[in-house]
């Protein structure tokens, strides 16, 4: 035992560092995992039409991401430009048209959800649906934002 005690001291010193590090989360200090897009997110109480439109856009991304089996974040990175959407479609093994349609379907679903929840009036929802169907996905939010001043509060 006398001969083994330096070994125990060494093990004790190692434990004195490793155990607290583990207790402080050392085994899980990594980037925050992204949320499941198929799970329902809470609607934040929108302060105006602009914020409501933003939540619609984000909710639409959740819907489209869920349908495609990717995360909302991967999809938002894909719809920032036409090239990005083409690259995304290639990586997912789907056609660019299918990817674009999935995004549009998600946006339309979100508009329906927002109208049903009373966040958007029938008039605003109708305008939002026309924009979604007519404008490329990466320009939808910009277009809706620019139309905000035309809309009632």
């Amino acid at each position: 035992m006398r001969r083994a005690s330096p070994l125990l001291v060494a093990l004790g010193l190692v434990a004195a560092v490793v155990v607290p590090y583990l207790a402080l989360g050392g085994a899980s200090f990594e980037p925050t995992p992204t949320a499941d897009p198929c799970a329902t997110r809470d609607w934040r109480d929108p302060g105006g039409v602009g914020e409501a439109l933003e939540q619609i856009a984000l909710s639409s991304l959740d819907g489209a991401a869920c349908k495609l089996g990717v995360t909302r974040e991967e999809l938002v990175l894909a719809v920032r430009s036409e090239d990005a959407l083409e690259r995304f479609a290639r990586e997912q093994g789907i056609s660019r048209d299918d990817a674009e349609q999935a995004v549009r379907d998600g946006m339309l679903r979100a508009v329906d959800d927002a109208e049903e929840a009373g966040v958007l009036s029938e008039r605003v929802a109708s305008l939002a649906r026309r924009v979604v169907q007519a404008v490329p996905p990466w320009l939808v939010l910009q277009t809706l934002e620019s139309l905000e001043f035309l809309l009632p509060g």
Binding site: L11, L13, V14, A15, V17, V18, Y21, L22, G26, A27
Partner: peptide
């Protein structure tokens, strides 16, 4: 001690 120290470097909180 060497192995334990290296393991602790792999578990930085």
């Amino acid at each position: 001690l060497v192995a334990g120290g290296l393991a602790a470097l792999g578990l930085l909180p």
